[in-house]
């Protein structure tokens, strides 16, 4: 079960403040990296919601990123919808596609679920790639940004834009944190732990899977609408299955089933990518090595290891305070992540 423990909230607040400061203090290139981190953080935390908490390991998450981006582009550039409304409306097809994928795959588990989502993602990718109306392999350029000059906010100012993206990421984090502590979130974790028992307790499993998939897809699509405005460009490349794989790597390197961990993972991978690119363009190699080391080390990831360490310390402390022998397997729900 998910609990927004003090440690999680503290790390989240720290990252948020760091993001806001960076939005105003960093140079032009730094701001670009910041937005990239925030976009990957959105993808990673929504994938953690689905894969870490819900047990549905998807390799097609990037498809929703693309659907969101393209839906925003079609609405603003073809249908003439005002950008702000388009951003909201673009979430509808994302939720619908995620919901449908969830319904269709509700009985598919384990590696077969991974394959099914991979197939779904590639289908969307290939379809876009080969569709002339959507710009084919070239994509679409000249995407407009939302216009908030009416309330005195200039989205074309890189600092303002980066700041807005960080705030949006923070809000999505809060929403998912809230959903995970809701009845639905509890049910989702229960489904992950023992789907069979949930059914035997009377739950209609597939509606919950569909909803989880829809929500995760919506958040990824939301990231897509921001990405389209950030680079003012969309292309099929944003939906490649290796993008989904990279997001999964971020989730693992940060800490599966912790919600804040994947955000840490996104920041780590993006920064590492840019640092390594300074002296070699073989960053794939290093990410691959990091990933394998992280998995062999137990697969807790950066934040996950921190949390486990803190939990061990507090347990040792409470054991020393209590009578010896009385603290068997007591678990502190604040520190636990199950």
């Amino acid at each position: 079960m998910y609990y927004p423990s003090k440690l999680r909230s503290a790390v989240a607040a720290l990252l948020f403040v760091a993001g806001i400061v960076a939005a105003f203090q960093a140079g032009y290139f730094g701001k670009e990296i910041l937005v990239e981190i925030a976009l990957y953080a959105l993808l990673a935390l929504s994938l953690d919601f689905l894969a870490g908490f819900g047990g549905m390991v998807s390799l097609g998450h990037a498809a929703f990123y693309g659907i969101g981006g393209y839906a925003y582009v079609i609405m603003t550039m073809e249908a003439g919808v005002p950008p702000l409304a388009a951003m909201a409306l673009a979430l509808v097809p994302c939720f619908a596609a995620g919901w449908l994928l969830g319904i269709v795959t509700s009985k598919v588990r384990g590696i077969f679920y991974i394959m099914a989502t991979l197939a779904f993602g590639q289908m969307i990718y290939v379809f876009t790639f080969q569709n002339r109306m959507l710009g084919g392999s070239d994509g679409v350029a000249g995407v407009p940004r939302i216009d908030l000059t009416a309330i005195g906010i200039d989205m074309n100012d890189p600092s303002i834009f980066a700041c807005a993206v960080v705030v949006a990421t923070g809000l999505v984090y809060l929403v998912f944190s809230r959903i995970l502590t809701s009845s639905f979130g509890r049910t989702l974790v229960g489904l992950h732990r023992n789907e069979n028992r949930m059914r035997a307790l009377g739950l209609s499993v597939r509606w919950y899977k569909a909803m989880a998939s829809g929500l995760a897809g919506t958040a990824a699509g939301f990231a897509g609408t921001i990405a389209a405005q950030h680079t003012m460009f969309v292309s099929p490349g944003m939906m490649d299955w290796t993008t989904s794989g990279e997001v999964l790597i971020m989730v693992i390197l940060g800490g599966l089933e912790t919600l804040i961990g994947p955000v840490v993972g996104a920041a780590f991978v993006v920064l590492l990518k840019h640092e390594i690119s300074e002296f070699t363009n073989h960053w794939h190699f290093f990410i691959g090595v990091f990933l394998i080391v992280a998995i062999l080390a137990g697969g807790r990831g950066l934040y996950g290891s921190l949390e486990a360490g803190v939990a061990r310390l507090t347990r040792r402390k409470s054991e020393r305070e209590q009578e010896p022998g009385k603290t068997t397997a007591q678990k502190n729900p604040e520190a636990g992540n199950a």
Binding site: I249, V289, I292, I295, L296
Partner: peptide
């Protein structure tokens, strides 16, 4: 060196480990 250690792990671990190998091979 690697695969034996994750052989009985879940599909997620296997997918990620071998995905990491793809990255390493690619740059190699």
């Amino acid at each position: 060196v690697l695969i034996r250690q994750v052989r009985s792990a879940g599909p997620l671990t296997q997918v990620l480990l071998t995905f990491g190998l793809i990255f390493i091979f690619l740059d190699a």
